[in-house]
């Protein structure tokens, strides 16, 4: 992977490169730690120097045709600095060894979440305190399913189905590939 020179990165900060080159450098720095660090340093320095030269004032009278080319670039500097910092942060953060799986749906949390906690509309302070205590989240009780095969799985989706000729309610766990993996019959108290 070819790294870019300081001059290229400085031109990239000012967007003084062809669009193709800008895209190429942007793609490169998102995966190159040294170039992202260089870009961050250059950006901070450019802002430092720009702020000092800005102390000289009189910029308002330079906003004509000749000055137009520079103003967009100056506006880019904070955004470019932020992008460089984010890219550097992204690179420096530890990455997981495995690709992140799809958001899991915890099986144990499905049933308790459907049970509402009722509070009295108007109640004395002691009752309200008791009600608040009751409203605290409780540890969900474990729910047992019957495995339909011996293959282990970590996440799945629980779906309520009607089971058998009597249409008994049952919860079936489907793994991400769509196969049913476990089942339990639902009693009236679990509805």
């Amino acid at each position: 992977m070819k790294c870019y020179s300081e001059g290229d990165l400085r031109s990239y900060l000012d967007r003084e490169l062809p669009p193709g080159a800008i895209a190429a450098i942007a793609a490169h720095i998102s995966g190159c730690r040294p170039c992202a660090a260089s870009l961050s340093t250059l950006s901070a320095r450019a802002q430092y120097v720009s702020s000092l030269l800005g102390e000289l004032g009189e910029l308002g009278e330079l906003s004509g045709a000749g000055a137009s080319a520079c103003q967009p670039a100056l506006r880019w500097l904070p955004a470019a600095a932020l992008a460089a910092a984010l890219a550097l942060l992204f690179i420096l953060l530890p990455k997981p060894h495995h690709p992140a799986p799809a958001p899991p749906i915890p099986i144990a949390a499905v049933a308790p979440a459907t049970q509402p906690v009722r509070l009295a509309a108007v109640a004395p302070a002691t009752q309200r305190a008791r009600a608040r205590k009751r409203a605290l989240p409780r540890k969900p009780k474990p729910q047992y399913f019957l495995a339909l095969d011996n293959e282990p799985f970590e996440v799945g989706v629980v779906r309520r189905v009607a089971f058998g000729p009597d249409e008994l309610p049952a919860d079936v766990v489907f793994s991400p590939d769509g196969r049913p993996r476990a089942i339990r019959l639902v009693s009236d108290s679990q509805n």
């Binding site: 020179s5 300081e6 001059g7 290229d8 990165l9 400085r10 031109s11 000012d14 003084e16 250059l42 320095r45 450019a46 120097v49 720009s50 030269l53 800005g54 330079l62 906003s63 000749g66 000055a67 137009s68 080319a69 520079c70 103003q71």
Partner: peptide, 29 residues
Amino acid sequence: RSSGLAYREIAQAMGIALPSVGTLLARAE
């Protein structure tokens, strides 16, 4: 540069190659 000239104009004003402007600007800063 701080007065608003683009790289192309700076290169012409100073008699330097356009690809060198970024490098020279970084060094000057």
